[in-house]
Design a protein around this nucleic acid. Structure first.
Lengths: 244, 244
DNA sequence: GCCGATTTGTCCGTATGTATC
DNA sequence: CGATACATACGGACAAATCGG
């Protein structure tokens, strides 16, 4: 599939920044120069550059130019702002990921599940408990709740590989956005057992809860990810906006 | 100061969504209709809507429309993606915030500080320890390192009010972006003392480390924020991008 | 301090592509 | 198929900030 022009330019500039073609603190070519280089309109350049800004790769300054502020140390681990499956981020970080399914069951949402997940009572749900290993170490314990009507045909085999791959490639679902909340919670006996934790060492952990939507506007997934505290690391680039 | 047109439209739509003018899952007026309503070009509408998308307020769907997916429960606490001072977020959440300065000193960066903060050895630094109270409860313990050459004239009085206000309004600095990393760490005796924690209850906490840049491309601040685990809550909206 | 050249920021109008209904 | 809606792309205009002469 041919990508859009601004995405190609974005990717090209990103590569050039990552490979050090522009040094730290150096200005990129002006928008006008990039227009000539890529043979496109200024708007298209600006779209590509604005993605680099949200990635924290560059900063733009009116009257001056676009400055490279990328430093290679940033590559590490998980980056907030995008949605990624465990399999995808493992590959991106060149690590070997494995997934073990601890539980796989179908259930009907009751009041208690409604309060936890937001799925209305009576909804048919797949509940899956999975353990994600990175380089042989159990790092993340996931409690997944999938709305059966939106994600029919889930199996243990799919859950062991990649549920997102199944949803996107087989069911042709389009995953759009995910509302996430990060908190710190006490570890449970289940965490202790499967993540090989010692409650005398760490007694709490990072928990990421997410409500995920598809392009039909359906909230089809609620997931609670429980992360080993000593390996948890989330990155983010924040942009200062004028106070509204 | 007159804001730009797309910002005004963004704010207006955001208000209408928050006050429930559009119900959950309902479609907003089409871009064309909004063009007529606001008397502007379609590009301008699209810029406003795209900010709502990154806020997680709406999702756009080609051929269909723009769907409202905002739910009031989202208002809570701190939202990732923007840079906000403690004072600003207190006001935004209609809470009473207070700041107490525990330490205020000037020092010269050595190798150890360089490794922790990224400020090269020899840099003149303000080191400030501050405790942030919300509704009378100590919630956040901050270790601030400010580059003296970029932030001259800091005082205890300023640190008790708002350092960002001083930097932006008095020094006319423009704060651009902040690279943040979230981790979970063991609590220290200092945390225990000032945040009124009991190590037998929680023995670790959420830590947000940030490197902040101004419009001169200078990394002028390193801050480590240590959050009470039982009150820590960070929100985020992630948008699924096509795999690159 | 002023002026002009350069650079990014905002805004407009238009055309075409693609998805939905 | 046509109508509608969002997505991409182009070109042009002017504003605002920066910098050098």
């Amino acid at each position: 599939m041919p990508k859009s022009k601004y995405e190609l330019i974005y990717k090209d500039l990103k590569d050039k920044i990552e490979t050090g073609e522009f040094s730290y603190q150096q200005f990129l070519p002006s928008e006008h120069a990039l227009v000539l280089t890529y043979g496109c309109s200024r708007n298209t350049i600006r779209r590509a550059v604005s993605r680099l800004v949200t990635d924290g790769y560059v900063q733009t300054m009116q009257g001056k130019g676009v400055r490279n502020i990328f430093r290679p140390v940033n590559q590490a681990a998980y980056t907030i702002g995008g949605i990624e499956s465990f399999k995808e981020s493992s590959i991106r970080n060149h690590r070997s990921g494995k997934t073990r399914v601890l539980q796989f069951m179908e259930l009907t949402a009751d009041e208690k599940i409604f309060l936890r997940t937001g799925f209305p009572p009576g909804s048919e749900i797949y509940y899956i408990q999975r353990l994600h290993y990175l380089d042989g170490k159990p790092l993340i314990l996931n409690h997944n709740y999938f709305l059966k009507s939106a994600t029919p045909g889930l199996t243990v085999e799919i859950a062991e590989d990649s549920i997102y791959e199944y949803l996107e490639h087989t069911l042709h679902m389009t995953i759009v956005n995910s509302q996430r909340v990060m908190t710190v919670e006490k570890i449970t006996q289940i965490d202790e057992k499967y993540l090989e934790l010692d409650v005398n060492d760490y007694n709490c952990m990072a928990v990421v809860s997410s409500h995920t939507y598809n392009s039909d506007g359906v909230m089809f997934e609620f997931t609670q990810s429980r992360h080993r505290p000593d390996y948890f690391r989330f990155q983010d680039n924040a942009v200062r906006k004028p106070v509204v």
